[in-house]
Design a protein around this nucleic acid. Structure first.
Lengths: 169, 169
DNA sequence: TGGTGATGGTTGTAGCAACAACTATTCAAC
DNA sequence: GTTGAATAGTTGTTGCTACAACCATCACCA
């Protein structure tokens, strides 16, 4: 089994993408920590809840949407609960399950945090690209995701906004 | 100061890119841990050394190229040293500085690790895209990096492979 | 020469994430 | 109904990263 190495163009692309992968999460995280005392993951958890019906989700589905293991989510939600941003209660339909719900304070937190986060995304991604490039990047990311996230767990939320939804499976 | 929210296309693009940001590092890390018992960061440190003259770099410049803080790099290099993959010695020109150098065993490790890593990159990124998309992504990533890494620290290595180098500044 | 600030690096401590072990509930089969 | 397997979640341990404190050396200059 001989290795197919990357040619010049492929290597250049990969090195640049790897650099984005390395730097962008840190920038997003810093802004949120600094301005809202939230990690990027915590913000994402709150954001998912804020988009859910009744601001409520089962722990399991929340874990799927955020690409977290259940143990990790459990710890994070407990900390958010300690801060009064989220509350947990047993699921009525399934006594094994636990629901997480955004509190009023948590909802408030999301609303005051979102503008700064969006501004950061704009500054470092959207506004750095031309409209054409944004369209191109959308297709590129979708292709990459076809192997990474074939069921679309992480983009489930977005599909409600999608004007050209995927065919049903 | 009113917020400029993302329109549908922008949001779709961002959600997908965010998903890639979330998933891809984990996939790369898993493959390296499983097949070579290295974290992605450790592999990157070894790779940078393997590309350097005499397989040697100052800790400070190694930290820059890998986007690490000096304390973090210090810990990681110590562990790599314990495993016999790297050795440290005082810099002759500056008694404050420390040089890190790849050992023969470390060089061997890089050579046997690279094929699997490249295969993973191919599988999840390069081979998922058309040649046109690869070119597009290269330009897109470069635009994004212009605000994230204006000095090109993380892509310094690559510039030697670049067939169309940037204009001097 | 001998202070002062800046640079280069290491070590100790605290917090977060991955993994494993455990409890409790549900579902299916007999 | 009772046993066994699968599901849902929590809690404890280990390892890595960020942050802070610290030491040594260099460069500058009075």
């Amino acid at each position: 089994m001989t290795t197919r190495w990357l040619d010049d163009t492929e290597l250049a692309t990969w090195v640049r993408l790897a650099a984005v992968l390395e730097l962008l999460p840190g920038v997003l995280d810093s802004q949120l920590r600094r301005d809202s005392e939230l990690t990027h993951f915590e913000y994402y958890v709150l954001a998912m809840l804020s988009e859910a019906p009744k601001h409520t989700l089962r722990m399991t589905s929340l874990a799927q949407q955020t690409n977290a293991t259940l143990p990790r989510l459990s710890h994070v939600v407990r900390r958010l609960e300690d801060r009064g941003l989220v509350e947990r209660f047993p699921c009525p339909e399934d006594a094994r399950a636990t629901n997480a719900r955004l509190t009023a304070k948590g909802w408030e937190k999301v609303r005051e945090t979102a503008p700064g986060h969006v501004a950061t995304v704009r500054q470092h991604v959207i506004d750095a690209l031309t409209p054409e490039q944004i369209t191109q990047l959308s297709a590129i990311a979708e292709s990459i995701l076809s192997t990474l996230d074939p069921d679309g767990n992480l983009t489930a939320l977005y599909h409600r906004y999608d004007t050209t939804p995927r065919p049903d499976r």
